[in-house]
Design a protein around this nucleic acid. Structure first.
Lengths: 258, 258
DNA sequence: CGATGGATTGAACTGGTTCAAGTGGAGTGG
DNA sequence: CCACTCCACTTGAACCAGTTCAATCCATCG
């Protein structure tokens, strides 16, 4: 669904402000100019982005924390460039990565008062930050915006259920196949690489914590898929998927003979 | 948050209809008359439930399917009595239970077009069914209803993240402790039993599929907690939690000396 | 060029699974 | 009311997928 064409009647911003917004709009949405769904595409009746005036931009280096579990959830974040990991920790340091986010993705939606997770930069990132209160304040005026945010939350919930199936019931090999295919899907939305050429900005330990495995097991499974001829590794952070059909079969538990 | 006090202006239902609704309202919400959040508490300006006129009641016996992954998501369900399990399957039959739901709980929110999971009755259940289209149609008129549904979806997403941490990183013992404490919380909301007396309507295999374990491991962990004096089993479907503090510690990975 | 830190590989180990055999309680029917 | 059946639950013992511990490799960077 693309809301670029949705026009919302009754913007209450004066003319001078509008012109300013127009500039901000163009500037703010460079990073989001891809195929995937983006809040930035919700426009008022002059075709202006209703959010751009509210945003402030921040930059983080790799490994820096963006928000933690204790933070008050004051902002809604939109990644404009780079990769982010969302994670939860046990007191003794065991970690579960609940998601990887890339340019165009949002986070900070799924909470009311406090974030329930930590967000950290994997690569250097540019992030667009909206005050939550102001966004929520716009919901009544722009039901389409509300619907969009709701939709994103629902989509997130669905993919989370799929990830629970993976964590609870898949084998190490099935987990890695599923992961690679999911990354391919994201990759193709970002359109930075060829169809079956997948960037993996995160480290092996991030992948391990995402799949509920150890670094060593992840590494061994990469090697194994490589030897089976299903993938080709180009360093640790780039993979070619040489047979996505068989990878899909394996991701769902289908047997590969030989 | 209790919305019982929220009055929404501008109900557009005529007087005759209102009286009918009043009756339905009382009838429809018996099962929801507990402490927890319920949609049934969203009222119009006459204190009438805005939803009750839309609902139809269905009954299912234990083990019957309520909806499957292939169903069009035409309904929003509200459990009035009994227990339901939500699950996803791999082609070869491996199953992940993503949640247990009880009186007052809702499901069918998290999807747009199709359910992405199967819902089955664990016990005999009474369920209240609302046509999704009509509910969604009311969102614009009653923003509080929309907000309530959105809130529930967000809460579900948060607890799902906690469950991912459990599935990916906790040991069998930690998983069972977490589960028992979570069930205790639900149980106390339903207020059917004493504080530390927990009903487990689901079978061991449901628990196993919820925690990403086998039936045998679940059974062994019950026995082990019993022997440690942390719980007391009264048959397979009722547990007394004898030391919730130590159970909490163990659920988070804290060591118990002895 | 050596140092640093992620990634890989090897080998031993183990938590949880698998397979197999009991056990017990609810339901049935004689 | 008891005997029988059924099925879910428990227990035991062998096994194994994935972990743990210990090198080693290798790319990057000062």
């Amino acid at each position: 669904m693309n809301l670029a064409s949705v026009h919302i009647p009754g913007s209450k911003i004066g003319d001078g402000r509008r012109r300013a917004n127009k500039y901000l709009n163009q500037k703010a949405c460079e990073g989001c100019a891809s195929k995937h769904i983006s809040l930035c595409n919700v426009m008022d009746n002059d075709g202006l982005n209703i959010l751009s005036g509210l945003s402030s931009d921040i930059h983080k280096k790799a490994k820096q924390v963006i928000c933690t579990e204790d933070d008050n959830a004051e902002y809604l974040f939109n990644i404009r460039y780079g990769a982010v990991r969302i994670s939860k920790m046990l007191p003794d340091g065991r970690r579960q990565v609940t998601g990887f986010l890339f340019a165009g993705d949002f986070f900070g939606l799924s909470c009311k008062a406090q974030h329930s997770y930590t967000a950290e930069a994997i690569t250097p990132v540019d992030i667009c930050r909206f005050p939550r209160k102001k966004i929520v304040g716009l919901f009544q005026e722009f039901p389409d915006l509300n619907e969009r945010v709701f939709d994103m939350t629902r989509a997130e919930l669905n993919s989370t259920h799929a990830q629970m199936l993976l964590l609870g019931r898949k084998t190490a090999k099935e987990k890695l196949c599923s992961f690679l295919l999911a990354m391919r899907k994201k990759s193709s939305l970002l359109a930075k690489t060829g169809e079956d050429e997948v960037d993996l900005p995160m480290g092996r330990s991030d992948i391990a914590d995402y799949l509920g495995l150890t670094v060593e097991t992840v590494s061994r499974q990469f090697t194994s898929l490589n030897r089976l001829g299903l993938i080709e590794l180009d360093g640790a952070h780039r993979v070619f998927l040489k047979n996505t059909e068989r990878l899909s079969t394996m991701a769902e538990g289908g047997r590969i003979l030989s």
